[in-house]
Design a protein around this nucleic acid. Structure first.
Lengths: 137, 137
DNA sequence: TTTTAATTCTACCTTTAAGTAGTAATTATT
DNA sequence: AATAATTACTACTTAAAGGTAGAATTAAAA
């Protein structure tokens, strides 16, 4: 009952990138060391984030990562979709297919509210909003 | 972001057992066929449920499973704990250790409400309550 | 006492997530 | 042109979840 490590790390990485204000790019080594995320795993994750189009990478010396669009326009849910962690409407708590009005599982009704709150949390929160808050490690 | 298959199946199995009113015991073959759960996987799951003390098994011919205590006294959460799926208080959405008042993650505050709703749902719902509802497959 | 129908146990197989290793490609600097 | 610093790619390893196979155990019934 939790997000994949990839999603958790990706959100933390991008939230950290928002706060980072500097002329030079943020690179994998620095992200790995400050966020305590294994270097090789971090680069693997970032490669997927880059492919998704949220982030741009510059290779070679002095390279690193930066946002492809303003963090105020990036919803947390966009990060989850990269790793197939987005909460789908049709997926219910007991894993039964087609759990809806006609035929619904024993916990269907009680599941609706927490599900919608989570969907709302992920779909409406922007990176910009959440970045200011909290600690990163 | 979902329960393990073991927890999902176990809840569905026990909920079905509540509705079953018959002189003879419910056995693995019948449960497997009516709930469309792989037989061998189901017996593995039930062995753990029996070990937890929620259910009693009778071996040998005409054997099967029945509740060790009334379903009205069994909370859904007791099933989750068998498979380590219970939602822990200290566990937060971004997987950071010690995410609390002092140092909390970027989504900590928004996570509280859905988390508590889920905990409430699992901790307060009894098997008896949820069994009447919904379809089983 | 043998047969039969049931659970239990031990061990394995498969798939996926998580993490690691090494090399290739790219780019700024010297 | 060489070097150093960076990401990308390919492939592997490890751990856990999900699932399967077969033999052992149990107990009712013939």
């Amino acid at each position: 009952m939790q997000l994949s490590k990839s999603s958790q790390y990706a959100i933390r990485i991008l939230a950290y990138m928002v706060d980072y204000k500097d002329s030079k790019l943020l690179n994998a080594t620095e992200l790995s060391e400050t966020l305590l995320i294994p270097y090789k795993f971090l680069t693997k994750i970032m490669t997927e984030v880059v492919k998704s189009g949220l982030v741009i990478s510059i290779r070679g010396r002095d390279g690193g990562y930066c946002f492809a669009k303003p963090p105020s326009e990036i919803k947390v849910n966009e990060i989850l979709t990269i790793f197939n962690d987005s909460i789908k409407d049709e997926q219910c708590v007991l894993g039964i297919g087609f759990c809806n009005g006609m035929c619904k599982c024993a916990l269907h009704d009680q599941w609706m509210e927490p599900k919608h709150l989570m969907q709302k949390m992920f779909q409406e929160s922007t990176l910009e909003e959440i970045a200011g808050r909290g600690c990163k490690i």
